[in-house]
Amino acid sequence: MLLNIKNLHVSIGGKEILKGLNLGVNEGEIHAIMGPNGTGKSTLAAAITGREGYEITEGEIWYKGKNIVGMSPEDRANEGIFLSFQYPVEIPGVSIQNFMRTAVNSKREYQGLPPMSTVDFMKMMKEKQAMVEITEKLQNRFVNVQMAMLEPSLAILDETDSGLDIDALRIVAHGVNQLHNAENAFVVITHYQRLLDYIVPDFVHVMYDGRIVKTGGKNLALELEEKGYEWIKEL
């Protein structure tokens, strides 16, 4: 199993947000996590990626056979965990190329490889860009390029759709579908069924009050769209 989360409890500033969450993800799978606001979906993403301020009070996060609780965020990233943020973060004055090159070379350093030459890097960038763009329209998004360049084993999309219009959404989904293969897995956190029209999940999980309260196939997302979230509170 690629990711195996057991009885995860996470607190922020002493307040418990995740209250015994279990989740297993195999290579080759796409999982969707849905649920109302404030049920801990983003906290889960933060805990998996090791963000500071999210205190794991109980439980384990097994990834590629290692319990990664306590591992630094950059080491987790270099082990292949990728998070697509809800809102893109900007670093003024740093070009896409410069940022990407720093990231690629950091990963190479972690793997004990020498930094990439400028020529090789530009070539790789071009190839990967072509891989994820919608060719007929030359449309692309930086997050797709990042995923293509860093080749994560586990990519988490944390409500990436909330800031995107329908065209941008299609581009991101296109990238995910291009990159998805039998060796990697995607966890898509979303409020809406809409994104799941383009990224078809194998499993849909519903979160409520810090736990996964229901798991089903892709039809569960349709059911939620129709019935809303009220009924899951009874579960």
Partner: peptide
Amino acid sequence: SEDQLFYCQQRGIPTEKAIGLIVNGYAKD
């Protein structure tokens, strides 16, 4: 910002290198 730093770390860039990148970008002009 915390967000900028975590963003870099999440892309595999260690903290010290991330700060260097951010500061150099800031001073680029």
